Amino acid sequence: MPTHCACTGGAVVTAENWPYPRWVAHRGAGKLAPENTLAAFRVGAAHGYRMFECDVKLSADGVPFLLHDDTLPRTTNARQHLGAGNSAVAGDHAWGELARLDAGSWHSRSFAGEPLPSLDAIANYCLANGYFLNIEIKPTPGTEAHTGEVVAQHAAHLWQHAATPPLLTSFRPEALRGAMQAAPQLPRGLLLDTLWTGWLETALTLGCVAVVCNHALWDTSSVTQAKSAGFRTLSYTVNDEWAAQRLMALGTDGIITDRVDLFSPSVR
């Protein structure tokens, strides 16, 4: 296996060569700021976090941007801006439309006018500050493989000179397969909300370096299975002290949290 990756400019990430910190700020700053915005990343960074998780999908014209939901109304002013007769599905709109939406007012008045960020904007912020990123590929239903391909291609280009590439994760194996085919050098992780039959074999087939579980799924047995197969073990979304202590006692490797105000990222 090569020790360096021509497409990222840095060392290849493997379970043995794992550069990421334990603590990861969920959607930028959890619930302290509007999720998946640059403002959230700044709030998370102000609390000392050096790694962030975000959700990335594609606009109708193929621009990767940050949004969790398939639809726009929960976290933007799409109803007022786009009008009642237009589709609420984010992936049905061109980036030029999406970029004009207010993605901050729903959270609080102090974030009014905060836009939806493109992956390019988030990459620039992380690279300029030496931050790590976990990109969850969040495809619009029916676009899983294509979204994985495009997000991976963009990430490979954006981080081509970086020491550490982003970690690409998804609940959808098709998206991870697309990412693997488009940019095999980028590290991948399989997200799980249940330990469905074949999860371990699927992660192996997809060339993953990590498995990212709902934190309640990790126990001695599942951690042993994952680690014996050569995977790093990460957890979402961990917002209670008891849960974090349990996961650290189990020997897991990463904790994704909303509570950037509760957990110090310096705790190992």
Rank of each mutant, 00 (worst) to 15 (best):
V238P: 04
S221K: 13
T71I: 12
T257K: 06
Y20A: 02
G83Y: 11
A229E: 09
L190Y: 06
S228K: 10
L101N: 14
G178N: 02
G104P: 03
R27E: 05
G251A: 05
A182Q: 15
S170W: 04
H157L: 11
V211T: 03
E16P: 01
T197R: 15
F52W: 13
T194S: 15
T143Q: 01
W18V: 04
A216R: 13
R79Y: 01
W23Q: 01
P2G: 12
L168G: 03
W106L: 05
Q185I: 00
P115L: 13
T3F: 13
L167F: 10
T220Q: 05
A182K: 14
Q153A: 08
A203V: 09
A182E: 14
L101H: 03
E149G: 02
N86G: 00
R188L: 01
A45F: 10
N129M: 14
V211F: 02
T37G: 05
A128V: 10
L98K: 08
F171G: 03
R172A: 10
V223K: 00
Y125Q: 14
T169I: 08
Y236H: 02
V43D: 06
L234V: 03
T14D: 01
R22W: 06
N36M: 00
P166H: 12
A216T: 10
T257I: 09
M1L: 13
E16L: 03
G130L: 12
L186P: 07
T164F: 08
G113M: 09
G30Q: 04
G85E: 10
S108L: 00
M51Q: 07
P165S: 12
L101D: 15
D219V: 04
S264N: 08
V43Y: 08
N214E: 07
R22V: 12
G207H: 11
L32H: 11
L38R: 06
V151P: 04
R79E: 15
R50H: 09
A210S: 12
L191H: 09
L168Q: 06
D92N: 15
T197E: 15
